[in-house]
Amino acid sequence: MIEERIRQVFAEAGAEGRLHAVPVHGPAGAGAEEPGGRGVGIGADDPVVIASIFKVLLVLEFARQVAAGQLDPRERVRVTAADRLGGWGTAGCLDDVELSLRDLAHFAMSVSDNSAADLLLARVGLDTVRLLAAELGLERTRIAGGPRDLLESMLAEVGARDERDFAVRYPALPDDRKRRLAVLDPRRTTASTPREITLLLRLIWTDAAGPPEACSFVRDLMSRQVFRHRLVSGFPDDVTVAAKTGTLPGLHMEAGVVRYPDGGCYAVAVFARTHALAASRPTVDAAAGRAAGIAVGFLRGDGR
């Protein structure tokens, strides 16, 4: 069975996987059935931590507000030392940076810039992002807060004063203590299910998640993601992938849409939880891509 093949891919990488893959085109409204009943799922309705994949919803809400004339995408924002969370993009800059709201969206999606996402969330509104999830029928999707909220939760649980202190304290914790962090528990943090994430992608790709210009904006930014080590690794070079990653200790995830030269489009959401926190990251990332490739290959009937 295709499900057993996919489980084996994750097992060989020292991980347990959750996955859902489905053709994009077909009824995609709230409560809609998968097109033709065709889909591949491994724990597709299990709750999963989505981490930075929540930025897809954030940027979608931003784009909808721009389309409605509620926000000027050219509005300037200054990213200061107090806004830096560490990591990619403006989050790791040494000096203050000024840029537009739409460039915050670009950095949040292309390099998963946490400072950019946090500032954009402050402008868009956490409650409006939550309302958007409900409007789209994502009944099991919960947004606990922005990147800063999650970071502060981790610092508090470990008893760290700041990120540098966390970097010292966290490695010294036993693995079972690390596993109990709230940010790794879908019951206590930003979470969804693989099936709801592919529904979100289908809604965006069919212009059913908002005005066409808003959906197009999100699709374009997802196509600009620089990280190419998960979903992309599971497909031939002539297949394009527009996606968003998410990463936390022991959690490797990505959701996106793959498009074949013949026009076939498939929404895929993959979530891998490693058995050991020291598991090889490249091995797990490659397994995520391989699992996605197998699932989509089955939907295409190519015998993979």
Score class of each variant (00 low, 15 high):
43 G>H: 07
70 Q>C: 11
45 D>Q: 06
50 I>H: 07
107 F>S: 11
58 L>V: 14
65 Q>C: 12
91 A>K: 13
103 D>L: 10
49 V>W: 14
52 S>Y: 15
50 I>E: 02
70 Q>K: 15
83 D>H: 06
106 H>F: 15
59 V>R: 14
101 L>S: 03
77 V>L: 07
53 I>E: 15
77 V>G: 07
75 E>V: 08
86 G>Q: 15
96 D>G: 11
42 I>N: 06
106 H>M: 13
97 V>Y: 02
71 L>A: 11
42 I>K: 12
80 T>C: 00
95 D>M: 08
98 E>R: 02
84 R>W: 04
22 V>H: 12
23 P>V: 04
40 V>T: 00
43 G>R: 04
64 R>T: 13
35 P>M: 00
106 H>N: 12
87 G>V: 11
74 R>K: 14
29 G>H: 00
22 V>D: 02
82 A>V: 00
93 C>Q: 02
60 L>G: 03
64 R>K: 10
48 V>K: 04
99 L>D: 09
68 A>M: 15
63 A>P: 15
96 D>V: 01
44 A>T: 07
76 R>A: 10
61 E>Y: 11
77 V>E: 11
73 P>K: 04
26 G>W: 00
59 V>I: 09
100 S>R: 04
40 V>S: 03
86 G>S: 08
53 I>W: 12
73 P>L: 10
27 P>C: 01
30 A>G: 13
75 E>Q: 14
31 G>F: 11
56 V>C: 08
90 T>Y: 03
91 A>S: 15
105 A>E: 08
75 E>F: 01
50 I>S: 06
80 T>I: 03
101 L>G: 12
43 G>S: 14
66 V>L: 06
39 G>W: 10
25 H>N: 12
88 W>A: 14
65 Q>G: 12
70 Q>D: 08
86 G>W: 15
28 A>R: 06
52 S>N: 15
71 L>V: 05
46 D>S: 02
98 E>C: 08
72 D>E: 08
71 L>S: 03
54 F>L: 06
71 L>I: 04
89 G>P: 02
107 F>R: 15
89 G>L: 09
107 F>C: 12
23 P>L: 06
61 E>V: 07
40 V>R: 03
97 V>R: 04
56 V>S: 09
22 V>E: 05
89 G>A: 05
46 D>P: 00
94 L>W: 04
89 G>K: 13
38 R>D: 06
29 G>Q: 01
88 W>T: 15
53 I>K: 14
31 G>S: 07
57 L>T: 02
81 A>L: 08
44 A>F: 03
45 D>G: 11
31 G>T: 02
80 T>K: 06
49 V>A: 11
28 A>Q: 09
77 V>D: 05
103 D>P: 01
32 A>H: 03
82 A>P: 02
84 R>T: 01
87 G>A: 13
50 I>F: 01
39 G>R: 09
86 G>E: 04
71 L>W: 13
99 L>E: 07
58 L>G: 10
38 R>C: 00
73 P>M: 01
108 A>D: 10
33 E>K: 10
31 G>E: 04
43 G>V: 01
34 E>G: 04
96 D>C: 01
97 V>M: 03
49 V>N: 06
89 G>M: 02
